[in-house]
Nucleic acid binder design. Structure first.
Lengths: 90, 90
DNA sequence: TTGACAGGCAAGTCCTTACTTGCCTATAGT
DNA sequence: ACTATAGGCAAGTAAGGACTTGCCTGTCAA
């Protein structure tokens, strides 16, 4: 299991999570085009693919393969560990 | 304002936040000794000092100077942005 | 005033990591 | 079968970040 904090440290990876929040179950190519369009991300396909590997390693993204398509789903459950670790003030 | 996510990406900095959760308002030297004792952190004074700068830059730590002592206080309010950014599942 | 103590500053080293480049595999359509 | 599409693998590059090293400033006690 990868480091959730390290996974969140990258700006592009956070944009990926934003995109999946907006529209869950996207393929790699869908993510690439939508990220360049709406989130001003200029990363290549390979870069996004590697980011998705990191996110999946951290448990923040799950995948389902169907033919030549691979769909990516958001899983925010690992984020609860952050909230529970330190007392949140107000 | 620094990046809260980047600040949390480091293991030693998270240990510092743990320490301040346990005992708020510590000086740099207090933190160094307690971190090596209880959190198995082997970083030098300068390393811890630089980590504290990052945490302060991210708004997770505030400081108060008194004579030759500088006290460090935990502020977890920036963590709320993480929780609010993505919907937490269960 | 002298020395010890708490902390700060800045340059250099080294390792991690984000990204590119090039090529490969597999599935689907015509 | 041939081609286009979706994705994967792996080595190389370059930038960022953690840490060290050495020295300096400021505060307090004797």
């Amino acid at each position: 299991m990868g480091d959730v904090f390290k996974a969140l440290a990258d700006l592009t990876r956070r944009a990926i999570l934003d995109e999946l929040t907006e529209r869950d179950g996207q393929t790699l190519f869908e993510l690439c085009t939508r990220l360049t369009m709406k989130h001003e991300v200029t990363s290549s396909r390979q870069a996004i693919s590697q980011h998705l590997d990191v996110l999946e390693g951290a448990g923040l993204v799950t995948t389902r393969r169907d033919g030549r398509y691979k769909f990516h789903f958001l899983d925010t459950r690992p984020l609860r560990a952050i909230v529970q670790r330190w007392p949140i003030q107000h």
